[in-house]
Amino acid sequence: MMIPALQNSLSTYLILGALLFAFGFYGLVQRRTLIGMLISAELVLSGASINFMAFNRFLAPDPTVGQIFTLFIMGIAAAEAAIALSIVIAVYRNYRSIDAEDLVDMKG
């Protein structure tokens, strides 16, 4: 019985990264609440990280660069999540809702 060795081919990781990116965009458009959009944005970031790690493993002359870039993406994502969630809490205190369609005070 034979089984494909998917873990040794670059295109597996690239397709998976593209899939996570597409899922993130789909959720970003389709979700109504701000927290749901934030969750989808995290999916987009992790799709980008998978791409960096795959190129780092298979193509890069210096295999530390992609890992360091992924670590920095994690740091930025953590900072982004903290800031976005405190904004969500502030919005909830003012509007009693985190639905993106209720935040229409600036609508003309």
Binding site: I35, A81, Y92, I98, D99
Partner: peptide, 12 residues
């Protein structure tokens, strides 16, 4: 952190 925000903001 997101779980905490869901808890505090109580989304519809």
């Amino acid at each position: 952190t997101i779980v905490f925000a869901v808890m505090l903001a109580d989304p519809e």
